[in-house]
Design a protein around this nucleic acid. Structure first.
Lengths: 155, 155
DNA sequence: CCTATATCAGGGGAACTGACATAC
DNA sequence: CGTATGTCAGTTACCCTGATATAG
């Protein structure tokens, strides 16, 4: 748990660049979220996979990775860690013997609920200076930027 | 130079969380910016330090780090790299023999200008789906979030 | 044959921590 | 003395690249 509070006087030129602001705010957000998750013995990848499983049900590792944007090789490690904590189960897929079927356990679901509450707390701290309406606007703008860069491909 | 275009179908629950959007959009932005800088043999830290020096003039490493949010120990490495490329000069401070005075060279200034142009290009790509007004709004909201978390200290 | 899956080994940049000698 | 500075060594989370064995 880091509590760093570097008092920074941003030079005016930098502070005006949206990409700078985005990377910096993103980094801040990432750190807050990571610290929050760490307090529950979890990482961002853990949360993402658990949330995916909860929403879409059991799936193969490749599918999981594709759907929540985690590289297949990282999925292996994360599933290992989640399985070691008994938050997911890894079983063979009878219909395709290359695959593993990953399933959320009841304990996994409980942990996911904890992580969601933690995320909500962190979010509140992160967006403290913004009103509810402003948070809405921010989310919508970020969503559009993200969409434009995560789903550009179907040519 | 990465051109990854992971076609991701974000689960609805995740896509709604502002902190998730922020970290994801921040990551995207960071990658685009990093790739753009890499094409000019530079990193984000290089740009930040050069920009700081250009705006505020020669400074010690500790001051530089404080003003642009880079850790002291990282400043050492970055200054090493910039000095090796002769973009900055590292000299002793006659008034305080603990310190080094870092100075921007003419070549450093030229490189900074290139990086600024590159950053502008990347920004345009990044924010392509947003109008000028929306970019303004986004920048202002992010700025407020950032301020709240980078200058929380004067209690 | 070619593709997809799971796995492993590893790199690379960003951010951070802890320790240390030196100078104030 | 305590604090600030520069330096070094090392760590972590995330993202990515390659290779391999195996199953479709």
């Amino acid at each position: 748990m880091r509590i760093t509070a570097t008092a920074v006087t941003h030079p005016a030129g930098l502070a005006a660049k949206p990409s700078w602001l985005l990377t910096q705010a993103g980094a801040r957000a990432g750190r807050l979220v990571a610290d929050g998750f760490a307090a529950l013995d979890a990482h961002g990848y853990h949360y993402r996979l658990l949330a995916e499983l909860d929403e879409c049900g059991p799936a193969s590792q490749a599918t999981l990775g594709r759907q929540c944007g985690i590289d297949r090789s990282d999925v292996v490690a994360v599933v290992n860690e989640l399985a070691a904590r008994e938050l997911v189960e890894r079983g063979p897929d009878p219909e395709d013997r290359r695959r593993n079927v990953i399933t959320l356990t009841p304990a996994g679901k409980r942990q996911l609920r904890r992580l969601e509450r933690q995320l909500a707390r962190v979010q509140d701290e992160l967006l403290a200076p913004l009103s509810a309406g402003e948070r809405e606007v921010l989310a919508r703008l970020l969503g559009r930027v993200l969409d434009h860069h995560t789903a550009p491909a179907p040519e």
